[in-house]
Amino acid sequence: MRLFHSPSKEPLWKDEFSVFTSDERYVTRRQFTKFLTLASLGMFVGNLWILAKVRFTKTPAFPTVEVADISEIPVRGVKLFTYPTAQDHCIMIRTSEEEYVGYSQKCTHLSCAVYYSAKNDCLECPCHQGFFSVKDGSVLQGPPPRPLPQITLERHGAKLLAVGVKGSSTARWHLSSCCSSSRSGC
């Protein structure tokens, strides 16, 4: 198979539909350029697909699920729960007397389960040593590319309820001691 063709004196159709089998496998630079342009079209379609997902995807309605009693978890204590479905494992941590944070337990690197390290006061992924902040779920160290999805918690009386999931928000939900739910930004 020849790698390079010198400019042919033959008509184009004779070059493209050769009678020689070996020449049929030959990809001309022009054909390769066509392939590259098609690949470029594919990339453009991919970007449009992401744009369409952003524009037309509705915010999912999350159920309200009771997670725990206030008295159930000590300060720096942990409670595991599932939210929004039974397959989505989450972790809730009581960071102070009146503060609770909840995150998806699935590491954003390769989906290992993260756990709370009270010693380092952070969430750790044991598989590849990824570390997340307890305050906002952001990546402190290691290979995870994104923060942990944050579970929106609300307090109703002595009950803690999970009411939503935030993709990668840096907001921190502060639960006031009053009965109604209250939130304050980070």
Binding site: N47, I50, L51, V54, S168
Partner: peptide, 28 residues
């Protein structure tokens, strides 16, 4: 551009998606 916009979309940042699509169209 595609990988960056996908990454930002998955991270919940949607602000960069439209400019990325426009630039991708220009490059095409």
């Amino acid at each position: 551009l595609l990988s960056a916009s996908l990454e930002s979309y998955l991270a919940g940042h949607t602000g960069a998606v439209l400019p990325a699509a426009i630039f991708s169209g220009l490059i095409f």
